[in-house]
Amino acid sequence: MDDAKDLVLVVEDEPQMRRFLRASLGAEGYRVREAWTVADGLREAAAEHPDAILLDLGLPDGDGLDLVRRVREWSSVPVIVLSARGREEEKVAALDAGADDYLPKPFGTKELLARLRVALRHARAGAAPGSPILEAGPLRMDLERREVTVDGRAVRLTPIEWRLLTFLASHAGKVLTHAQILREVWGPNAATQSHYVRVYMAELRKKLEADPSRPRLLLTEPGVGYRLADGPRSAIHR
């Protein structure tokens, strides 16, 4: 596995959770560092330069979201938030604060490893020179030639649909909040008009999905936002 030696920083105060994470990450070949508080987590993040951070929100000395904001001041390391609170507002807050993904507790190993792989891949893709081809499952976008195909079938998009799909496809597998999408596609003045996104997503689904009422590609995360399914590529690893 290409990311076998990646270093993962686990910031979690629950010893049993750390035990489980250590075991499942270790079994997958990751190196693991552990911290139990916000202060320790920040120190470890600065000193060890981890490739990814798994972060619990309820820490004894503060809110995990503070750690995300502080780390974001100097690093774009992928952060996956683990939380037992599970409310949609908190997911949105974590993602808007700069977390890359959110995993509600309880979660299974398979889910955790899949999300971690997606996050690590995005981090690497962001560092490498951009490719003009975006692929996710049956979807293929050629950014240079401005062409979209689904299973080889060409699809015509309006300019807004194109911008929306490009944004989603360049973050395939990652949840994007309504606010993030609105800022990117419509600009900062549209940040509260979440029905814009919803209407255009409905249009995109009609063009891209075999059955728009049972989407396989453009997935809804209720109350949070949207995620472009990462498709078979990550399924091979599972």
Binding site: R146, V148, L157, T158, I160
Partner: peptide, 9 residues
């Protein structure tokens, strides 16, 4: 929005 060009130009 104005009618999109083919391919989303």
């Amino acid at each position: 929005e104005p009618d999109g060009d083919p391919g989303g130009t």
